[in-house]
Design a binder for these strands. Structure first.
Lengths: 253, 253
DNA sequence: AAGTGGTCTAGACCACCTA
DNA sequence: AGGTGGTCTAGACCACTTT
């Protein structure tokens, strides 16, 4: 059937509630999924997509941007946009289970195992660059979720009576605000490191696991707005309670 | 000094090589870093930023988009853009060390420990949904980098003489292409899971560690374009050789 | 009602890559 | 030289939130 004028796709519904760019992204994602655009191949130019779908160039660009964000395509300036192949080493993991648990405030319970002002020693003292005479606030907590132990935490901060951080650390009711939520005083930056760890007898007992079981250890070091290390700590979560999962490729096509 | 007309910022140099949006993003990032815009506060509206810096609204929007991408701010429709506080549970980790190692092809060395066609059994058979009579290709490799053992890998795939995956799996010279690089046949999607693990005697020996040392285990399951599980495997890398690090907050202000 | 971010237009010029 | 993605303009309308 010959049709005069511009050929506009009927795959894009501009009256729809879902944005045009999202619709276009979905169309292209689908075509990647069914190998219309196979791995390694070049996508039509953004300008071509814009023309054939009857949208503005910026809108088409935004659509491709979504796919690039998802890791499905790679843009190469001057050359084109290519369908990516899956690469293990380029994936990233989020602390999904941790986020879920700490978002579920009603079912969270925190038990303070220790709270003390100590002379500095060990890794915390090193990282917080304590000087002679400095004191550290040390807090040890057990975090339960739905009645089951979820995480063990130790946290250290330089003892500074003028800083609000001390109260925050000792107040169980605002624990979730201190680290996880939106109302803690605020740090400028932080660095996190994830380790595998074997639970010793004590930790295994606290976490309701058998000794020798494996766990994740998440260490955090936060800096205040003077770029001074201000707080250091570590969470230990048994591997049974925390899954680190990542999906790659096309999952909704 | 009174100045007539529009006030345009001298912080943005439109003749510069660095894009205007990146410059504007840097300015706002700096202001977050020095607490001109403290944690929790609202940023000036995108339109206001556009006006005061003499750029187009879309450009200002792009600049804020960079900061949102970095996790430094949160956009709330109808309300504004707010400076985020650091939250542990929202961070993500990338396999940085793995990527570095596998990008360094000249110093990679692969030793095949086992290559066989087996009757299915165990987790691999389960995940690959083998049927009666199916065979699995099983490959076990030791990956060395700069002369030192880096990772141990096992991989399974359904035995299908017509599929190119078999050759790929058995050919050491293209190992890096099979999983990590840009030239393997291509899967539609995959799921990865990261576990902590204790090295047993054999693995510890292979990886040059002492038994009982902790390691990361990265399991991968890939699906072909028919959504059929096609390949399953696992890497084990000692924690000494793989760091999982993440930075949050403002690091370049 | 006013202000905010979210989307979208219809162009433009540029740097870069490939042929 | 021609095509590609990268940037940018100067507006527009909308949905949503706040006042």
């Amino acid at each position: 059937m010959a049709q005069g004028g511009k050929k506009k796709s009927d795959l894009i519904d501009k009256e729809s509630w879902t944005p045009v760019y999202a619709q276009l992204a979905a169309v292209v994602r689908r075509r990647i999924a069914d190998e219309t655009y196979p791995p390694g191949s070049r996508l039509p130019a953004e300008s071509a997509l814009a023309k054939s779908f009857g949208v503005s160039p910026m809108t088409a660009r935004q659509a491709i941007g979504v796919l690039a964000q998802e890791g499905l395509v790679r843009r190469v300036q001057g050359s084109g946009t290519f369908v990516r192949r899956i690469e293990v080493s380029k994936t990233s993991f989020t602390l999904g289970s941790m986020r879920e648990v700490f978002a579920d405030l009603e079912n969270l319970e925190v038990k303070i195992l220790k709270a003390a002002i100590e002379k500095p020693g060990g890794k915390a003292a090193q990282l917080l660059k304590t000087k002679e005479g400095d004191r550290l606030v040390a807090v040890e907590r057990l975090i339960r979720h739905r009645g089951l132990p979820f995480a063990h935490q130790v946290a250290y901060a330089r003892f500074d009576p003028t800083a609000p951080i001390l109260e925050k650390m000792l107040d169980t009711s605002v624990l979730t605000e201190y680290i996880f939520e939106e109302n803690h005083p605020g740090f400028k930056k932080g660095i996190l490191e994830l380790y595998p760890e074997v639970l010793d007898d004590r930790l295994a007992g606290l976490l309701g696991e058998e000794a020798g079981v494996c766990a994740f250890r998440l260490e955090h070091l936060f800096f205040d707005f003077n770029d001074r290390a201000a707080a250091f700590g570590a969470f230990v979560v048994s591997a049974n309670r925390m899954r680190l999962t990542s999906r790659v490729g096309v999952w909704d096509g």
